[in-house]
Design a protein around this nucleic acid. Structure first.
Lengths: 257, 257
DNA sequence: TCAAAAGTGTTATGTGTACACCCATGC
DNA sequence: GCATGGGTGTACACATAACACTTTTGA
């Protein structure tokens, strides 16, 4: 959606192609270099920050919609996307949207437009390498930022609650969901995956116990290669044991409700 | 909704009072006398069984809607209701509803009526004592049954998937959510809560380890009373330690996403 | 030879699991 | 006294957590 005509059509006729009252919002957690960040976008006409989101098309599954929205915002596809909760209880979700009249959209949204109706939002999360993500500008969002997870500002609507719940969920699922597939190269060293898990969990993990745990879960396979990393001892390379990880994933899905 | 006029108004004007495209379906698990059952209703005009459900009113939170729907179907209130997943990916949820033309409703549903639109459904579960539930007949459901959890027939739409996921969730959350508050009288014996947990989990639990676990979680309080149960030793009475259970619940909510 | 980073094993502690015998009650 | 069901404790296996020294590498 780039041109003025497309936006006008979306505002006036979107309700013919998208389901009303339902949105998907994505908590896109970015990891790079021992930092955990979340992708925030600035809503042009609202002058505030929030999560990227969108509507579901008539002939699209939820999963497809979440992937499409993620693709549109980050240009990444085939990520591990996970539904974590559906939000409809907060004060902001109870009434029609009373958006700032001082809208800076190309065309104003008419009163009683479908975009102003009350929405229920389904939350999905993804964990990505934020160095590899290129944000596509969108007509509704004019800025974005990777915001440190520790210092999230006040967000629009109930998006703070969403972020909190997304991070809780990721931390609970990290040993049973393939978080990490998209963050590490195919072969990686123990220290790499170690700091990744430390960063996501927000706490230190013992350097000797950590590989034991991963090995006992059977999701890691030690390779016979080492990586040369300068004036230091060469660490061994590992890869995910796909077969076993799939199995853990199945049990994890049972865990994930 | 009882009279013909009310139904006609619901069909023709419901979209003014309810959110379109979103439903709530309730997996109401019933327990009594070591049996686990699920409440199924027969949809009059579809000639098939499914879960009771309903739409969300314009000014209602999801939680309120789920409670209202449960109240309407079971006449029980103040239950522990828990959202467990939102369903929108199955084949049945992708297209408009192509309901049997041979409708046995009082008035036929017009083509392009809001009730025939595609819906996303938010699943909630509750666990109740099925002996204490009196089902209110509904104009859309003409029969109901408490169906044994082991032998669930083929249900309408994706409701089999919902039931499965609901039971998975309950089993995962049983030690951290106040499942049981509504099933046992205020004071109960160890054997009573023991068979309850065995029934829900579908497996045997060691009679000596089980109380240890509940005690170590701190959710149980032993009382100084015993109950006389005929020609046997009198079992001690217990009650839930409300304060500690609330605390467990808080952590459980974090667990429950 | 030095600095930086990787590798590795043992012990203590707690948690989960398996298991069998005695006690109380009413008939 | 007997049948029925309730109550209790111990031993073992396993997982988790704490902890420090040695090896490799390249400059």
């Amino acid at each position: 959606m780039k041109t003025e005509e497309e936006v006008e059509d979306f505002i006036l006729n979107g309700h013919k192609h998208y389901l009303r009252h339902i949105t998907i919002d994505c908590a896109i957690i970015g990891y790079h270099d021992q930092q955990l960040k979340i992708l925030l976008v600035k809503w042009k006409h609202l002058n505030g920050w929030g999560l990227p989101g969108g509507f579901i098309m008539n002939e699209e599954t939820l999963n497809e919609a979440a992937n499409r929205i993620l693709m549109e915002k980050t240009s990444l596809s085939d990520l591990f996307l996970q539904q974590f909760y559906t939000f409809g209880d907060s004060f902001f979700r109870l009434s029609k949207k009373d958006w700032d009249k001082d809208q800076r959209l190309l065309i104003p949204i008419p009163e009683d437009n479908w975009l102003l109706e009350r929405t229920i939002s389904i939350g999905y999360y993804a964990v990505v390498d934020f160095e590899k993500v290129s944000i596509s500008p969108d007509i509704f969002y004019d800025e974005y930022q990777w915001c440190d997870i520790q210092s999230i500002p006040e967000l629009l609507f109930d998006h703070n609650e969403m972020v909190e719940k997304a991070i809780q969920t990721i931390r609970l699922q990290i040993y049973h969901q393939p978080i990490g597939y998209n963050l590490l190269s195919e072969k990686f060293t123990l220290p790499e995956i170690h700091v990744l898990y430390e960063t996501i969990l927000g706490k230190q993990l013992d350097r000797r116990n950590f590989p034991k745990k991963l090995m006992s879960l059977g999701i890691l396979k030690k390779l016979d290669e080492q990586r040369s990393i300068g004036p230091h001892r060469s660490p061994f390379l590992y890869e995910f044991d796909k077969e076993n990880y799939e199995k853990a994933l199945m049990e994890g899905i049972a865990l994930a409700f």
